[in-house]
């Protein structure tokens, strides 16, 4: 299939989706599902009204602190788990537990521990993305072919050198994948936490949901979609720039 053929199909798909949505919106009415023709104008209005972008930037800043911490702690931890059996045995059960724990159930407890501001949102985002980042790094570190390390050893490379020149590059694609997966969950957790205490961008979404028209609500979701898709593509791009061997097939799925 040629590139232009794929592009044609992509565009056809999007146009068909928009058409379906438009028809559905016309039938259901604005207060059940605003049609794209209405949303476009509402979106432009909100874009210039300022609230949307201001809240979004504020929320994203807090999310990236939590997500950054999850990467900073989860990646080395995952790598250690993958290379050292004892660490793995001790930590793995709890990391698995963190992965399956629902962030929504933690929210009421975290409010008591961290309040409703910065610390709360950072903590929720951290907990929800930490497990994914760690486990992906773990699988990467475990999967490193021992033969490669043997080769490095036989050239009498020191442990630090081995780590820097052999293990890290082999791990890199996994770290980026982990970050992409973690980011998906970080965004989910951020919105959930904010909807729970009704602050920030999530609060905006929830409160707009009570309005008569659904056009502003859809506008907020569209922005969120742009941000999420953009961040994911950005991470993929960074991955390919920093490590040309980063296989795009590894993208989070």
């Amino acid at each position: 299939m040629t590139k232009s053929h794929i592009l044609f199909l992509n565009v056809t798909g999007i146009v068909m989706f928009l058409l379906l949505w438009e028809v559905g919106g016309r039938i259901a009415g604005e207060n059940l599902l605003a049609a794209p023709s209405i949303v476009v104008f509402e979106y432009i209005r909100l874009l210039f009204a300022g609230d949307m972008l201001r809240e979004l930037v504020g929320s994203l800043r807090q999310m990236f602190v939590g997500f950054g911490l999850a990467c900073a702690i989860g990646m080395p931890m995952g790598a250690l788990m993958g290379r050292i059996r004892l660490v793995d045995a001790l930590v793995h059960p709890w990391v698995s537990m963190v992965v399956v724990t629902s962030a929504a159930a933690l929210a009421p407890i975290f409010i008591l521990m961290f309040g409703t501001g910065f610390e709360f949102r950072v903590a929720i985002v951290f907990v929800s993305s930490f497990g994914y980042v760690t486990l992906t790094a773990y699988h990467g570190a475990r999967g490193i072919d021992p033969k490669i390390i043997d080769v490095a050893r036989s050239y009498s490379t020191g442990p630090v050198e081995t780590y820097r020149k052999v293990i890290l590059p082999a791990l890199f694609p996994y770290l980026i994948t982990g970050a992409r997966l973690g980011l998906v969950h970080a965004t989910r957790a951020m919105v959930m936490a904010e909807m729970f205490v009704l602050v920030g961008y999530g609060g905006l979404i929830f409160q707009t949901g009570q309005d008569l028209s659904t056009a502003p609500l859809i506008s907020y979701l569209v922005t969120l979609m742009f941000v999420s898709v953009g961040a994911n593509m950005g991470l993929g791009w960074i991955g390919r720039q920093l490590a040309p061997w980063y296989d795009s097939k590894m993208s989070a799925g």
Binding site: I111, L112, M113, G115, T116, G117, F118, V197, L198, V199
Partner: peptide
């Protein structure tokens, strides 16, 4: 100051020491 619409949450947030 910050707005927290749920009254219950306001009380809870004092417990954390963050507010």
């Amino acid at each position: 100051w910050e707005r927290v619409p749920k009254l219950q949450t306001i009380t809870q947030s004092i417990l954390s020491g963050q507010t």
